[in-house]
Design a protein around this nucleic acid. Structure first.
Length: 459
RNA sequence: GUGGCUAUAGCUCAGUCGGUAGAGCGCCUGGUUGUGGUCCAGGAGGUCGCCGGUUCAAGCCCGGUUAGCCACCCCA
């Protein structure tokens, strides 16, 4: 028998999970718009060569082809399409394509699915939703956007605290600091060093020290310096002084380092004021991607650090370039699916119901279905989500129909008396059992019952 | 892509020394006269992932395969 089984890495939620996801999406979108970001959507595909420009992700790209494509023809390859694996590459292409029509600096948000042919795991998917914000400038982009963007994300995620999302911690670092320091101590393969330092949480400092020596040719002294830098973290500007002291001790003070430290200081100082306790400077944050040139960000859910980063990004001096013009940018991306999957699997949140209906209108018998339809229409006309019972089963079954779906109210159309006149309708709150006469032209459910809500699971 | 673990009812899982399948939950029906949840009584539902091998006999042992989970890699 052809077993129906979920496809690993392609998550699908039940209706009440979708209510949660939709709430998250709505909340993020509202926050982005409050900060003036314009929404765009790009196509799902990009030319393969465009997607592969960013490096070693090639194996992860899903290629698109027609079932009947001529196998000879696709040898040509330059017209091959792939599903985008992030929203930054499509955005960069979009900026170049529409540069003449956009006003810079351009702030946009983009919430879409992306695809990566990775091995799925808890919180890691092959098809998932990202919510990105980026600011892109023409030619130049003021540093203050590197301060603003992580704070917008912190606010967006903070807006989800009410439904039970754990607090977040935005870890920040600056590429110029890392690069300036590493070069200052004589390590030229900045990329390689970053990659090893990035493993710190997983393998520990001793292993990283060995890797630095074995893989990057570092001296024990250089390795020690890298680890001491990585150990520095803090919420206030004193981290900057500590980095400078360390660099001085190793004779590693460079202009690049000083530039980076000034930037990092500005970010930490602003964050301490605008979002105290949320942004933490952490000098071990590396981010493997090579195109970051300034601030880099990673965000964890407090208590769920094992889940990995739920929101990352950074500054790119060259987000896009057409040869003549360069467009620097800074942006972050929330892994919406990762967040939602954890909210659901760890039972941090729940939806009050999985269907929109606040009311089920009972059907007395099929001959009187029209009366129930009329009640439903009257309620809907006033914006109350309603459905009519699917069958004229015993009332006990119709109540159970509502109960199973979490629908709080059952409406009983008045019985037709011997005089042929319909008696008064009644509405029952099936949670309390309370049943009262009601008029479809005026009855209102309490506001909290009107639509499904997302609430902390323990509420 | 590499490695480890797993696959039995809709779900979560038991299944001993190989002897042709069980529980809990869920679902359906009933417990008169149109009002659910609790309780009671009944009931439906499984080619034991798939293919092959060993054996008188395989859910159990062996090989393969597919899928899922986890770790690595990388990343949201």
């Amino acid at each position: 028998m052809a077993r129906i089984a979920p496809l690993s890495g392609f998550p699908e939620w039940l209706p009440d999970g979708r209510v949660v996801e939709q709430h998250v999406l709505d909340t993020l979108r509202r926050t982005f718009e409050l900060h003036g970001f314009a929404g765009i959507e790009t196509r799902a595909v990009e030319p393969l060569e465009q997607l592969l420009r960013k490096g070693e992700t090639s194996k992860e790209v899903y290629v698109l082809r027609r079932l009947q494509a001529d196998p000879e023809a696709d040898e040509a390859g330059d017209k091959q399409l792939g599903l985008h694996f992030d929203l930054t590459v499509p955005f960069a292409r979009y900026v170049l394509e529409n540069a003449g029509k956009l006003a810079f600096p351009f702030k946009r948000y983009q919430i879409q699915k992306v695809w990566r042919g990775e091995r799925p795991q808890d919180g890691r998917f092959r098809e998932f939703v990202q919510a990105d914000i980026d600011v892109v400038g023409a030619g130049e982009l003021p540093y203050h956007f590197e301060v603003e963007l992580p704070l917008v994300m912190a606010e967006a995620l903070g807006a989800l605290r009410g439904i039970g999302l754990p607090p977040v911690r935005v870890l920040v670092n600056n590429r110029k600091v890392a690069e300036g320091f590493y070069r200052g101590v004589g390590l030229e393969d900045v990329e390689g060093v970053l990659r090893q330092v990035d493993k710190l949480d997983k393998v520990g400092p001793d292993a990283v020290a060995e890797l630095l020596q074995a893989e990057q040719g570092a001296t024990p002294e250089q390795a020690k310096a890298c680890l001491e830098l990585a150990a520095i973290s803090g919420e206030d500007v004193s981290v900057v002084d500590r980095v400078r002291e360390l660099a001085t001790a190793y004779g590693a003070v460079t202009d690049l380092l000083e530039t980076g430290l000034a930037e990092l200081r500005a970010l930490v100082a602003a964050a301490a004021e605008r979002a105290p306790g949320v942004v933490v400077a952490d000098l071990k944050i590396a981010r493997g991607l090579d195109y970051y040139t300034g601030s880099v960000y990673e965000t964890v859910l407090v208590g769920h650090e094992q889940l990995g980063s739920i929101c990352s990004g950074g500054r790119y001096d060259t987000l896009a370039s057409d040869g003549k013009n360069t467009y620097p940018g800074v942006g972050l991306s929330i892994g919406v699916s990762r967040v939602v999957s954890r909210l659901l699997s760890a039972e941090l949140v729940r939806a009050t119901r999985g269907v929109p209906s606040a009311v089920v209108v009972a059907v007395v018998d099929e001959d009187q279905r029209a009366a129930s339809d009329a009640v439903a229409a009257a309620l809907r006309g006033r914006g109350i989500p309603v459905e009519v019972a699917p069958t004229a089963a015993k009332f006990g079954k119709q109540i159970r129909y509502a109960d199973r779906r979490g629908i709080p109210y059952v409406w009983f159309p008045g019985a037709v008396g011997e005089d042929g006149v319909r008696g008064p309708d009644q509405v029952k709150d099936i949670r309390s059992g309370e049943q009262t006469p009601a008029d479809a032209a005026t009855w209102e459910p309490p506001a909290e019952d009107r639509w499904p809500r997302v609430i902390p699971a323990d509420a």
